[in-house]
Simulated scan of single mutants.
Amino acid sequence: MARFSGKVALVTGSSNGIGRAAALLFAQQGAKVTITGRNAERLEETRQAILKSGVPAENVLAIAADLATDQGQTDLINGTLQKFGRLDILVNNAGAAVNDPQGRMGIDQQIEDFDKTFQINMRSVVTLVQKAKEHLIKTKGEIINVSSIGGGPHAQPDMMYYGMSKAALDQFTRSTAITLIQHGVRVNSVSPGGVYTGFGEAMGFPPGALEKIMKYFESHKECVPCGHMAQPIEIAQVIAFLADRTMSSYIIGQSIIADGGSSLLMGMQAHDMMEILKQP
């Protein structure tokens, strides 16, 4: 029997990247899955990838929604319950780093970008968990938050608001883990380093720009000691591990760092991203 047989998973931000890989993995391993994102076209690509892997169509629910809105969250929870009748696994993967339209970074970035960053990376997670909590308590379910090494103890001078939001998410993980384990619900998180996703374009970088930065980091061992940035499936496997109570039952309120060793050195902070982009 597949390890997630009989389970229902809701994966936010599953129209690409880590969320798509996680949704595909859950579905392939027996779960019924709700996928969601704002871009209906990319969301359909995720659905088709799941179906092409041999998963029955009735095991996949696609809901195009804006997770930052109350209505979008309500549609996700209600749609999942109406389709599958329960909720066992909530993966809070949707997130963003907001670029300043004038290219300012760090403390010079406009405060509106702070609000937008915390709206999707933190506030939407809190409110979605509030809506999902009673249903996860019924199933003794799992919550996995997707954080970042950007929320760790190292400074993030260029992406300060993003780092702050992920540090807040880590505290939310720890705090809700203590509250919800009393009801049988486990809360944990994964903190990836660099991952090849569509994150750069979502930030407003030109196509290929973030990939250029990541290739540079890969060639410098003080940035990525293992020599390569992650593929989405490498992070999805950690998410699945944390969702599998047989494998990770005694892990409560922790964040597993999956970064190829980057946070042990954090040499990435010694390089100027804008200078990297100027190189041929």
Rank of each mutant, 00 (worst) to 15 (best):
V60I: 13
R47N: 07
M122W: 13
I251M: 06
G267W: 06
E142N: 11
S262L: 14
K138A: 14
Q109K: 15
G227R: 00
A65I: 04
D75C: 10
T74S: 15
D100H: 13
V185A: 07
E218S: 01
E58R: 06
I144Q: 02
G193P: 07
A94P: 12
S5L: 15
T173L: 04
A230C: 03
Q109W: 09
L90D: 06
G72F: 10
C226Y: 07
V185L: 02
R245D: 09
P280L: 02
M105S: 15
I143Q: 07
G152R: 10
G163A: 12
Q182V: 00
N39C: 04
Q156Y: 10
V33H: 07
Y250I: 01
L136E: 05
A167E: 13
L24S: 11
R42Y: 09
G103W: 12
A209Q: 03
N99R: 15
A240H: 01
I77C: 12
A236Y: 08
E45A: 14
T12W: 08
D113R: 11
Q102R: 15
R42S: 04
Y250L: 02
I89K: 09
G163I: 02
I50P: 13
I252P: 02
A243F: 03
G194N: 11
T80E: 12
I18K: 14
A27W: 03
T74F: 15
V11H: 07
A94D: 12
E218G: 02
A96T: 09
L81G: 10
S189E: 08
S248G: 01
E112N: 13
T117W: 13
E41I: 04
G30Q: 05
G261T: 01
A202L: 03
L128G: 01
Y250F: 06
A62D: 10
K215W: 03
V125E: 08
D70P: 11
D100T: 01
T12D: 13
I235L: 13
S147L: 05
S165I: 11
G198W: 12
R86V: 00
K83Y: 12
A209W: 00
S148Y: 13
F114K: 02
L128E: 06
E218M: 04
V91Q: 14
N145K: 06
A27P: 02
I50V: 10
L210G: 01
F26D: 04
G152F: 14
L180A: 15
A168T: 01
F114E: 09
D158Y: 13
H183A: 14
L61Y: 13
G163Q: 07
V146A: 12
T127D: 12
D108C: 05
E218L: 04
K166I: 10
L242N: 01
S262E: 05
Y196Q: 05
I276Q: 01
H220P: 00
I233M: 09
G19N: 06
N78Y: 11
M203H: 05
M266L: 10
R20D: 06
L180I: 09
D88Q: 03
I233T: 01
